[in-house]
């Protein structure tokens, strides 16, 4: 078991608080302007209205995967992510202000408002994501291939959901990464649901980690949504990748507290499921560990929580206060 230092643990705790508050604040922001009577008569909800229009996929509950992984990453390591990208974007060090501004479609956003919440690109922090299921894995192979060709010890992490493990891109990429001994860590965030389809309705085996054997790479399953456990397992995979020992597949069983997207009626969820999941909240789990091991005093805790709240608040204020891009930009950036 690889243990984080106290500083690293405190960092993970604070990042989880920031992510949770960022996501849960967005729940309400997202609803602004989308409900009657402000919208077309007869509608209960209008996805295209309000300051944050379009789809919104939030990751509250999945924080341990992001922080347990990103705790091992350096600026030069690459992430390719999914349509649910805020948690690992924040943990990777992407500017939370530019992230929030992009979600608001503002010119100060990561993509000057051209990408939106599923398409975030930060060249400096080597972060990218895609709205297409399973699409990040091939590109992760390419990033890792580039690192190898450049003779660097950079690693690439690619996140994907358990639904994406049934895409051809998953299988093609695992084979390619193993064949070429690429420094890729494949991290499957198994939140049990591909929108409404449960894993046992979609997947022939219980653990996607077992599929690693078919490609000759290690596969490990982390079953408890515990940031420390994720930290330990990912740490080993990152060390292997940096040492030139090739790719790994890690499956993290985690929990999606909110709908697939906001506005999802979640009729597919058993009653009371989320309340039950929240009883074992991973942020509380890490907090209790920090307190029990005397790594965090009450004063420390308050200071961290206040700082996290202020960070999120400032990000959303920045986003709201920023300008929309001028429409003259619409034809720019098709090519560089």
């Amino acid at each position: 078991m690889i243990e984080p230092t106290t500083d690293k643990m405190l960092w993970m705790y604070e990042q989880m608080l920031i992510i949770r508050e960022f996501e849960e604040t967005m729940v309400n922001i997202y609803l602004e302007g989308k409900l009657p009577p402000e919208i077309q008569e007869g509608l209960a909800f209008d996805i295209g209205s309000g300051p944050v229009p379009g789809e919104m996929h939030l990751a509250a509950g999945q924080e341990p995967v992001a922080v347990g992984t990103c705790a091992h990453l350096k600026k030069d390591d690459t992430i390719t992510g999914t349509h649910r990208p805020h948690h690992f974007a924040i943990a990777k060090g992407v500017s939370i202000n530019a992230l929030a501004a992009e979600i608001f479609g503002k010119v100060t956003g990561l993509g000057r408002g051209k990408g939106g919440h599923m398409h975030l690109f930060d060249v400096e922090n080597k972060f990218g994501c895609s709205g297409i299921i399973g699409a990040g894995m091939p590109q992760a192979c390419g990033a890792a291939l580039a690192a190898k060709k450049k003779g660097k010890d950079w690693v690439t992490v690619t996140f994907f959901g358990e639904g994406a493990a049934n895409q051809g891109s998953f299988h093609e990429s695992l084979n390619l990464a193993a064949l070429w001994n690429l420094p890729v860590i494949f991290i499957c965030e198994d939140n049990s649901y591909a929108i409404s389809v449960t894993k046992d309705e979609s997947t022939a085996i219980a653990n996607n980690a077992d599929r690693a054997a078919g490609y000759g790479m290690p596969g490990v399953s982390v079953d408890n949504n515990d940031a420390l456990e994720v930290f330990s397992v990912v740490g080993e995979a990152v060390s292997r990748a940096r040492a030139g020992e090739g790719p790994s597949l890690i499956e993290c069983k985690t929990d999606r507290y909110l709908g697939h997207f906001q506005g999802d009626a979640e009729a597919y969820r058993p009653e009371g499921e989320v309340e039950k999941l929240r009883e074992n909240d991973p942020i509380d789990l890490l907090r209790d560990h920090l307190v029990a091991s005397d790594a965090m005093s009450d004063d420390n805790e308050k200071e961290i929580k206040d700082r996290a709240s202020a960070t999120v608040k400032a990000a959303y204020e920045f986003a709201r206060a920023s300008d929309y891009p001028d429409t003259s930009e619409v034809a720019q950036h098709v090519f560089v």
Partner: peptide, 28 residues
């Protein structure tokens, strides 16, 4: 063989990999 690479018949993987490598400054 490091600079001229035969690939498996996995077009999604290797064309996606070309995009990923290009984003990192290679010129595939």
């Amino acid at each position: 063989a490091d600079r001229v690479m035969d690939t498996p018949i996995s077009e999604t993987a290797f064309i996606g990999a070309a995009t990923g490598a290009a984003a990192e400054g290679m010129r595939p």
